[in-house]
């Protein structure tokens, strides 16, 4: 298992490996230096579980290891696709999966034109990023102008404007966990008091959500659109049914395990063992 920081999830995985007598080698990315001319299959073993919390570091290491013939989960294709909201949304649009109406623009002016077409309120998201960071609610053209102006002074990656309708939904969304070809658990993420975002990293509360056939079908289609591996699929309950608004590549499950009773880390390891065989 490759990691940057040992969080609750990495400890849960290490404990699950202990219980299953799996020889799990914990490799801290900060200790790594990699020789592009060397073979690394022996050092990294049969399969690498990619748990780096830094997205850019994780895709660089995954690219390196895959080029050396090491199997990494999630793989580079999946990390590129799920790790970028534009890539993942396009894959889902092409697969006919219902997603919120979304535009892409590259300047303040063109974004405001897109917003005129889309209507307010709308949400501006960085194409790469997580935990609700820098996601901005634009209630009207004045707030949109201010937010976009701020972005114009930021690093250029934040000037790829991914603009999405603000879906009329209850103050919650659904996070479902896909391991291979199974949806193993799902939770409601309920917004904290006075907060419109639902991310548990932003204080959102978790409640069990029994997996329905509709949810399972949608999540498996979304996961397949990304590739294959381990995914967290986020859905919203719109007036027209479920919409998938995000697919996550390095799943966090510390709040889900106690609420659902599903041993997600064990199931993740079982999946990796099956892949090995």
């Amino acid at each position: 298992m490759l990691y940057d920081v040992v969080r609750t999830e990495e400890k849960m995985l290490a404990k699950a490996a202990d219980r299953k007598n799996i020889d799990l080698n914990m490799i801290c990315s900060k200790d790594l230096y990699l020789d592009l001319h060397k073979d690394y299959q022996e050092k990294f073993g049969d399969i690498v579980l990619q748990r780096c919390v830094s997205y850019f570091r994780s895709i660089h290491i995954t690219a390196f290891l895959e080029s050396k013939g090491v199997k990494v989960v999630n793989g580079l294709h999946e990390a590129f696709t799920a790790g970028n909201k534009l890539n993942s949304t396009l894959k889902m649009v092409n697969a006919g999966i219902p997603v919120p109406k979304t535009y892409l623009a590259f300047t303040q002016e063109s974004s405001l034109k897109a917003l005129e077409e889309l209507g307010y309120p709308a949400v501006l998201k960085p194409t790469m990023g997580s935990w609700g960071r820098l996601i901005a609610l634009m209630n009207d053209s004045e707030s949109a102008e201010s937010i976009l102006e701020d972005r114009e002074h930021m690093f250029p990656i934040y000037q790829n404007y991914y603009i999405q309708e603000k879906v009329k939904r209850p103050p919650r969304d659904i996070r479902a966990f896909v391991i291979g070809d199974k949806v193993v658990a799902a939770i409601y993420r309920i917004s904290a008091e006075g907060v419109w975002k639902t991310n548990t990293a932003r204080g959102g509360k978790a409640e069990n959500y029994p997996v329905t056939n509709e949810l399972e079908d949608l999540c498996l289609r979304a996961a397949t659109a990304m590739g294959e591996g381990l995914f967290g699929v986020d859905l919203m309950e719109s007036p027209d049914g479920l919409l998938v608004h995000e697919v996550n590549n390095t799943i966090e499950f510390r709040n889900t395990v106690p609420i659902t009773g599903v041993d997600i880390p064990s199931l993740m390891l079982d999946y990796l063992i099956d892949l090995k065989h």
Partner: peptide, 11 residues
């Protein structure tokens, strides 16, 4: 001292 959240950290 721990880095609490990097700009590219997340899921």
């Amino acid at each position: 001292p721990a880095q609490v959240e990097g700009e590219d950290w997340g899921e």
